[in-house]
């Protein structure tokens, strides 16, 4: 879609705000609707929009699949490690009360950390799945439709 000037300009304006909104949904999830999964989907949508407008090859260079793969694994690992941290603190697996001396503070830290893990995984997985399918497709010409 190299010659779609309007689409390119509008997406350039929109993509930073979509990612910013994703971060808001991620880290404000304790107070307003949202959380890791929604934030991940939003950020991944921004990445996919970028890939649609500027080409999959360029998107692959900006959001490297190798880094995304590590991100996907790191998110799940972070979630699981929070569970082990609670075990080390003397509680049950994923019982955030034992993360910090104060139960409530422990819950807050635990929730925000595991939501961040979910966000990382969902962002990376959505983007990688798109790259995997887009990698099999030729560049689409406008005449194809």
């Amino acid at each position: 879609m190299r010659h779609h000037l309007v689409l390119r300009v509008v997406s350039k304006l929109l993509i930073p705000f979509i990612i910013l909104y994703g971060l808001y949904v991620q880290f404000h999830g304790d107070f307003s609707p949202g959380g890791g999964f929604q934030a991940g989907a939003l950020v991944a949508a921004a990445i996919i929009l970028y890939a649609l407008i500027f080409g999959v090859d360029r998107a692959r260079r900006v959001f490297s699949p190798a880094v995304l793969t590590v991100m996907a694994a790191a998110g799940v690992l972070l979630f699981a490690l929070v569970g082990y941290a609670a075990l080390l603190g003397g509680g049950n697996y994923l019982d955030y009360d034992y993360l910090l001396p104060s139960d409530t503070a422990g819950q807050h830290v635990g929730i925000i950390t595991v939501e961040f893990g979910v966000g990382l995984t969902v962002t990376a997985v959505m983007a990688l799945v798109f790259f995997a399918y887009a990698g099999r497709t030729d560049e689409i010409d406008d005449e194809d439709w």
């Binding site: 999830g29 304790d30 107070f31 609707p33 949202g34 959380g35 409530t104 819950q107 807050h108």
Partner: peptide, 8 residues
């Protein structure tokens, strides 16, 4: 837990 969003 003391957060406003019960869903989270």
């Amino acid at each position: 837990i003391q957060i406003p969003n019960i869903v989270t």
